[in-house]
Simulated assay, not measured.
Amino acid sequence: MTSTAVRRLLAACTLVGVSALLVVGGAGAASADTPVPQPGSWEPKPDIDVLHAFLVLGGIPLLVFVVITLLYVAPALARGENLGVNALEPESQWLGGPRKAAGELAEPDSEDSKAGGAGGTW
C-alpha cells in the first residue's frame, strides 16, 4: 500500500473509533430511569386530543407542501405560462442524429455484414 492509502485507512479507522466512542458515551444518559413520582413534583401524562394530533401531524406538513408548491408555480402563472399536462412535452429530438465524423463506423448494410462495431448472438 502507498503512504496515501495508509493515511486514508488510518483516518477512516480513527473516524469510526471516535464515532463509536461518542455513541457509547451518550448511551449512559439515555438509560436513565423515570423518577419516582412524588406529590407535586411529577406531572401526570397529558391527554392528547386525536383531532389536535391529526391537525398538527398532518395539517402542518400539508400546509408546507402547499406553500412550497405555490412558491414554485406562482412565477410561471404570473408570466402567463401554460402549466397544463400537454404544455410540458419536450420538442422532438433526434438522439444519435446524422453522422458527422468521418471516423465513425458505418452501420451494417446486410445480415452478413461485419460493419457497425460490436455485435452478439444468442
Rank of each mutant, 00 (worst) to 15 (best):
V50K: 07
R99Y: 01
L63R: 08
S92P: 11
L105R: 08
T34N: 01
P61D: 07
A53H: 00
G116S: 07
A102V: 03
G103A: 10
I60G: 02
I60C: 07
P90W: 10
S92F: 11
P90R: 15
G96Y: 12
N86Q: 14
K114D: 10
L51Q: 04
G97S: 04
E107G: 08
L70K: 06
A53P: 00
E111A: 15
E89S: 10
G97N: 11
T34S: 01
G96L: 12
A53G: 01
E91G: 15
L70R: 11
E91M: 06
R99M: 01
L63C: 12
S113P: 09
L83C: 05
R79A: 13
Y72F: 13
L63M: 14
A29C: 14
G40C: 02
S31M: 07
I48S: 05
L71V: 09
S110K: 10
K114W: 09
F65V: 03
W42I: 00
L62Q: 08
G117Y: 04
A29Y: 15
A106W: 06
E104G: 05
P37T: 00
P98A: 14
T69F: 09
L95T: 07
W42Y: 02
L70A: 10
I60P: 07
S41G: 02
L51A: 07
I48R: 13
S92Q: 03
P44W: 06
A115R: 15
K114I: 06
V36N: 07
E107F: 12
D33Y: 04
L62A: 05
E91V: 12
G28K: 14
P37V: 00
S113A: 11
T69S: 07
A102C: 02
E43T: 01
L57G: 07
W94K: 15
K114T: 06
G28L: 15
G59A: 12
F65L: 05
Y72K: 06
I48E: 11
L55S: 04
I48K: 12
A106T: 08
E43N: 01
V73H: 09
K114Y: 05
L63N: 13
L83D: 04
D112P: 03
V73I: 13
S92W: 09
A32H: 13
L83S: 04
W42P: 00
L77F: 09
D47L: 03
D49I: 05
W94F: 13
L83K: 03
A53T: 01
E104V: 11
